[in-house]
Each structure stands twice: as C-alpha cells, then as structure tokens.
C-alpha cells in the first residue's frame, strides 16, 4: 500500500486537506514553538513501516513544513513513534526510552504488528505495544500509508494539546500567521 494517485500533490491540493494541514501546523506552532520532535522506536518490525515513515520526509508529504522533526535523542522528543510487535528482549529498552522522554509526551503505535494483529504473545514477543507502553494513538495498516501516519500524527498532536491545556513554550502566539 504505497501512496497512490489519491495522494494530493503540491499543485492540486484538496481543499479540506490543506485546511487540515494548516490547522495542524498552527497547533504545533502555538503549542510547541513550531517544532514537535519525534523519536521512532523499532521494536522488531520488518522495516516496511520504517520505509513509510521515511517517506513522510519526502517532498510529497514533507512533514517538516508542518513542524514535525525526527530526533535520535529521547530527551528532545515529544512523541514516541513505535513500530513492530514489541519483542520481549526490547521491552526494557522501550520502557527506558519512554521514561527518558520529558512530559508531556504521547505514544503512537504504528502498523498491524504494533496493534497486535500479526504475532500472538509468545515467549519471544509481547505481540502488542500496549503491553509495555501506554499507547495514545493507534495507526493501523500493514504498512500504514504516509497519509495515514500523518493523520495519526494529527490525532497525536490533539492528544498532546489535551494533555497540556494552555501550556505554550513561546511568548508570542502569532507566529503561525507569519509562515502561512
């Protein structure tokens, strides 16, 4: 399920879609000072989810324009993007990563494996990210398309905003207007 023809290009934007994108960007701008950092965590995926995540940075989707960035350091992250069925050997590392992220934080489980649809729990695999981490957003798909991921990120931003009512890290709140 790679991005197909229904993906909006830059020159033919769907009206509501660009509307949603602008809204998302404004939220991030206001709530997170124009930058929301994502830490990806591979808990045993087959790497196809990762390919789709990587496509998010491609010009078609370009999530950076919305204010999302990837970071390797959990200390800098706001959002934990988890793929894979959570193999048991990785449980401790996943827990540590979650603890290392400063609050407010949100966890997004991505792909059929993470949702518990592929591997049943056995001595090697938890089979479900929710067994180890408090998941806020579930994004189905095998793999989920970039657009689905974007939607999931939008939902996650909403959850983060709920967790941090009125919390902003910048003084001026009119930055969103400048970029639009």
């Amino acid at each position: 399920m790679s991005p197909s023809q229904d993906t909006p290009g830059q020159d033919t934007p769907g009206q509501d879609l660009s509307q949603a994108a602008r809204q998302l960007r404004d939220t991030i701008a206001v709530q997170f000072g124009r930058s929301l950092h994502i830490r990806t965590l591979d808990t045993g995926s087959c790497a196809v989810c990762e390919q789709e995540i990587r496509l998010l940075s491609a010009p078609h989707y370009d999530l950076h324009r919305l204010g999302f960035f990837f970071t390797p350091a959990p200390r800098h992250a706001d959002l934990l993007l988890v793929t894979g069925p959570m193999v048991r050997a990785f449980g401790e590392a996943a827990r540590k990563t979650y603890k290392a992220i400063p609050g407010p934080k949100v966890v997004m489980a991505t792909g059929a494996c993470a949702l518990g649809g592929v591997y049943p729990a056995d001595p090697f695999v938890h089979g479900n990210v929710g067994e180890v981490l408090p998941v806020d957003v579930w994004v189905p798909g095998c793999p989920p398309s970039p657009l689905a991921l974007l939607q999931g990120l939008g939902v996650a931003v909403g959850r983060l905003a709920e967790k941090t009512p009125g919390l902003t890290f910048i003084a001026g709140q009119d930055i969103a207007g400048g970029a639009g």
Binding site: A73, R75, K96, K99, A100, P102
Partner: peptide, 12 residues
C-alpha cells in the same frame, strides 16, 4: 524538577 535516570541508550 524531576529526577530521572541518565539516558543510556536503552541498554538493559
């Protein structure tokens, strides 16, 4: 402030 363990790269 919150005290948390040093980030060790998730090493067990």
């Amino acid at each position: 402030s919150v005290s948390v363990p040093v980030w060790d790269g998730g090493i067990v």
